[in-house]
Design a protein around this nucleic acid. Structure first.
Length: 692
DNA sequence: CGGCAATGTGTTTTT
DNA sequence: CACATTGCCG
């Protein structure tokens, strides 16, 4: 087999098939190529049975990409390789051994929003004030414990404060309710297989024997459960190859532990380590910027990206006057690029928080550039879609109280909070599901409706079933009656959903409701089904991981935004923000712009911003700085240079009303406005301020 | 029970 | 500012 198009390190990583191997793959160093070539090498050269290879990724997208590439290289045989995400792998195990885990065959997978409503419900039942015990926070605590394999019982050992005590109470009830409703949350998909393996060593052995060769992508993002799961399965043959880059670990807030990668050599004594430092993606200038910043992190392996690519133009650092001008600047540059023949799809605007997309979107709309915003509103998170799926889930598993409560009064059928409370109480009194104890009233009509659909479901295709649900539930009619733009969009989304079910049917032939629900539960983004048209991409840096673009704009490089204010206190969190910045920079192939604004309005408050520390960490020799005070003419007439101020002057602001000057410096006034606006800094002589 | 006004809250999010 | 959630009243 031909390995000639690989570099020396890549070749080593492919050929070292036996024993533990750690591949530290810098951004753009050909990681996926190594992984896929390695799989092919195992099969073709080492005559390994495709069935004994397990390759694990984090996203469906990555799994699919790997699969496609391997299919291209291997053909038919590739279908026998187990290439899947952590969660779908976990699900497969649970599907096989659900009985040993006390689950019914028709268990439900709850998404994070479902978990949250379950927690809200539990708080209510336990009479715990959600103001003090924030449901989201509690969910996160429970989730991170599960990711570290700490169940409620285990958590009881960590209880110190009153707060912990309440969390424990909720956690216990949460566990109980999941079992009662035969439901699993996302974390269970990883945790339950481990519990299964611990309880039944013979089952673990079966998996150890089956998967003699294991590959894990993005190892820096593994959490405790994922780490242990793969460790257990690889324990016998120890042919485990992990690929990752600790400098790209950006999900620690979700339990990812990049120390898993740093500790790999300790975990596997005879591990070999291969560094992939040659970058095939970016210009030297871009890499220099990335290296300059990331070297300020203390927790990392030494690694220095280099490239044979050209030096390229310097990275532009542009400071705009405010966020509108920031957007204006970026859009102008993009128009320029496109005038010079660049395709919109080769350009991306990256930001730290979704909220930043608005201003940019406005500017893009004015310039009439085709664009797409990735990941802000997930298709499956839209209300009407979630409602429809909730119906399907209840039809599949009537014990699923969470989804039942979601739709019992959707569309409105006169079942209000009182009735719901009564039903909930009765259900817990008799230790039955809500569905079971329904015997009268409007809710009985609801139950009969579900029963009717259930009785017909076996004769229908999935798409027909969806139609029946939309019809019988009244969801469709409600939207038709509403006749608003909003309801039109919702109806369209439901149609879109049917096109997805149709696609499933084309792909798999007859697909059961069960399989469809499992699949849908593990796929959160419909973009994955959609074609990539030629559009400019707007997205958060997090969503940009793993992608690349010729031209990249990173905006909002200000203290408080990037790095984010919630992370600026804590050392570890700042390092994570820095890794995030590193990820952002290394997305760019040809040219990179770093952009920020001097003034920014957040939550309706305008404040002067401080340049992001990451900008200051970059050596001047790689940067071309454009520190525009006022970039565009239409702003210059707002400044009146003749006005002079002193401390104590009374002023009147267009928006904030009366204020008193409390500070004057060269160009900037500090003004105290009424308390709802607070103290603000403004450019001296700005037309929005008048002496009063 | 359902609709509307008041109030509060505010990162990132592979599954 | 923009959105979600809560609380009150018809």
């Amino acid at each position: 087999m031909d390995l000639e198009n690989l570099n020396e390190q890549q070749k080593q990583a492919v050929m070292k098939t036996e024993g533990p191997l750690l591949v530290l793959a810098g951004a753009g160093s050909g990681k996926t190529k190594v992984l896929t070539t390695r799989i092919v090498y195992l099969i073709q050269e080492k005559k390994v049975d495709p069935k004994s290879i397990l390759a694990i990724t984090f996203t469906n997208k990555a799994a699919r990409e790997m699969k496609d590439r391997v299919i291209n290289m291997l053909g038919e045989k590739a279908y026998e390789i187990q290439i899947s995400t952590f969660h779908s792998f976990g699900l497969q195990i649970i599907k096989k051994y659900y009985e040993k885990l006390e689950y019914k065959r028709n268990f439900t997978i709850l998404d994070s929003e479902d978990s949250l409503s379950l927690i809200r419900k539990i708080l209510k039942e336990l009479n715990i004030d959600p103001q003090i015990y924030n449901p989201k926070r509690i969910r996160n605590i429970i989730s991170s414990n599960k990711n570290e394999l700490i169940d409620a019982e285990g958590y009881s050992k960590f209880v110190h404060t009153e707060f912990d005590k309440k969390v424990l109470e909720v956690y216990k009830k949460y566990e109980k309710k999941l079992i009662e409703s035969s439901s699993l949350d996302f974390d269970d998909l990883l945790m339950k297989p481990i519990i299964l393996f611990q309880k039944y060593p013979e089952i673990l052995q079966e998996y150890q024997e089956k998967y003699k060769y294991i590959l894990i992508d993005e190892y820096q993002d593994t959490n405790g459960a994922q780490y242990l799961l793969t460790k257990m399965i690889s324990a016998k043959y120890k042919n485990i190859c992990v690929v990752g880059d600790e400098s790209q670990s950006i999900y620690s807030f979700r339990g990812a532990n990049f120390r898993n990668i740093l500790n790999f050599e300790k975990d596997y004594k005879d591990a070999e380590v291969i560094l992939l430092e040659k970058n095939y993606r970016s210009t030297q200038n871009i890499l220099n910027v990335a290296n300059d910043v990331i070297k300020n992190n203390t927790q990392k392996k030494d690694k220095n990206l280099w490239t044979d690519n050209e030096i390229g133009s310097k990275v532009i650092y542009h400071q705009a006057y405010n966020e509108k001008e920031e957007a204006h600047y970026v859009v102008n540059k993009i128009v320029e690029l496109m005038d010079n023949g660049v395709d919109a799809k080769d350009i991306a605007i990256l930001y730290r928080t979704n909220a930043q997309s608005r201003t940019i979107e406005d500017a893009i709309l004015k310039a009439n550039i085709p664009y797409k915003i990735v990941g802000s509103v997930y298709f499956y998170n839209r209300k009407e879609i979630k409602d429809l799926i909730a119906y399907l889930k209840v039809i599949h598993n009537e014990k699923d109280n969470i989804n039942l409560l979601r739709i019992i009064n959707v569309p409105k059928r006169g079942i209000g909070p009182k009735t719901i409370e009564a039903l909930t109480n009765k259900a817990s009194l008799y230790n039955k599901s809500i569905y079971e104890i329904i015997e009268s009233g409007k809710e009985l009509e609801f139950k009969k409706m579900i029963e009717e659909i259930k009785s017909k479901k076996d004769e229908l295709t999935l798409t027909e079933l969806v139609d029946l649900v939309l019809d019988k539930s009244g969801m469709k009619q409600e939207l038709i009656n509403e006749k608003s733009i909003e309801s039109e969009i919702r109806l369209e989304n439901l149609e879109e959903f049917k096109s997805i079910t149709r696609e499933f049917e084309e792909k798999y032939g007859i697909i059961s409701l069960e399989d469809f629900l499992y699949e849908v539960s593990l796929v959160s983004d419909v973009e994955e089904y959609k074609n990539n048209d030629n559009a400019l991409t707007l997205m958060t840096v997090h969503s940009a991981k793993g992608l690349e673009f010729d031209y990249v704009f990173i905006v909002g490089l200000e203290e408080g935004i990037f790095p984010h204010r919630n992370s600026s206190e804590n050392f570890d969190e700042i390092e994570e923000e820095r890794r995030l910045f590193y990820v952002a920079v290394t997305r760019a192939k040809k040219k990179l712009w770093l952009v920020n604004a001097k003034m920014r309005t957040i939550y309706g408050m305008t404040n002067r911003s401080v340049v992001s520390r990451f900008i200051n960490e970059i050596s001047d020799k790689y940067l071309e700085k454009e520190l525009a005070e006022i970039q565009f003419n239409d702003y210059s007439n707002l400044i009146d240079e003749t006005e002079d101020y002193a401390i104590g002057d009374n002023v009147e602001h267009d928006e904030y009303g009366p204020g008193i000057v409390v500070g004057v410096d060269d160009k900037v006034l500090t003004i105290a406005f009424s308390h709802q606006y607070g103290i603000k800094k403004m450019i001296k002589g700005h037309k929005s301020i008048k002496k009063g």
